[in-house]
Nucleic acid binder design. Structure first.
Lengths: 153, 153
DNA sequence: CGTATATAGTTAGCAAAGGTAATGAGACAT
DNA sequence: ATGTCTCATTACCTTTGCTAACTATATACG
């Protein structure tokens, strides 16, 4: 019979690499679900927003580069781009020299949406962050950079 | 015309709460995609594994509690439970006092799978972690606890 | 030159995972 | 005992990702 063995929270045995990896994975998944749920209240989905922001960062980017950026396969990006294009938030133009390729740029509407959305974009997370101590925020700042590095490999 | 305005990497203006929130959100999404892709190579999906682990932690848990734990709606958990049940990894038994409810527990097979899987579970992440400096790992350890706190709200 | 290969984007089709709304069985309060 | 509430489940839809196949263009080389 299972009489609730002395188990601990996911954050428990953080000492080992494996333990840290386990805790991170579970926590990241849960946090992501939370964030995604928050994002669903916006006009765009989380993925669309992230892609739109990426296009803003790298104007005249190609779908292929975008896919690589977002760690996604090209077909996945194609769908997102199509959705954004339909709403007039980005524009596809022919590549200057290679006619196989396409370049994607943010439109005025896209910029406006980004700007307007950006204010309330991370409302939930920012709200939670406010409740943290300065020390905790410092940790998260450092962690964000490390995690970004991890995600890029 | 969009001539690539002076934009920076997502990890850029981390100073403000909003900037930190933004960077975290994008990074978490990307890392999660990475992890999910890795998890697809296992016998269970990421969600199934996470749920199985949660059941292990809280033996004789009800689906409702499980859904709350995982920050998911009850129907979503029902599907995962059904899948795990089909494979004999968990067992559903009637609730001792309330016959509407169900209690879920890990079976021997589930325990074995968890144990066996746990070793290679976070292989990708653990591998990446090994490449970090001790200081970076310390930061992540602290961050994991903070993020877990955030995800629980 | 002209054919063969490589590459970029897209399309088609599939699976995972989440959500909401509706349903059914049981608990419980009046 | 009847009406209301709660828990789990079912049915159905959406989003997002993937792989494989297709199209058009570029490029290498015989």
């Amino acid at each position: 019979m299972l009489t609730n063995p002395p188990k601990m929270s996911p954050a428990a045995n953080l000492r080992s690499d494996a333990g840290l990896a386990s805790a991170l994975r579970v926590t990241l998944a849960r946090l992501n679900r939370r964030l995604r749920r928050q994002a669903a209240k916006h006009s765009l989905t989380a993925t669309q927003l992230a892609t739109l922001a990426a296009v803003e960062r790298h104007s005249a980017i190609t779908p292929g580069e975008l896919a690589e950026q977002e760690k996604v396969q090209p077909p996945s990006i194609t769908r997102v781009i199509a959705a954004l294009d339909e709403r007039g938030l980005i524009a596809r133009s022919p590549h200057p020299t290679d006619r196989r390729q396409v370049t994607v740029s943010v439109t005025e509407a896209g910029l406006a949406l980004l700007k307007e959305e950006r204010r309330r974009k991370e409302a939930w997370l920012a709200q939670r962050l406010k409740e943290l101590t300065p020390e905790e925020k410092t940790v998260l700042r450092q962690a964000a950079q490390i995690l970004e590095k991890l995600s890029k490999i």
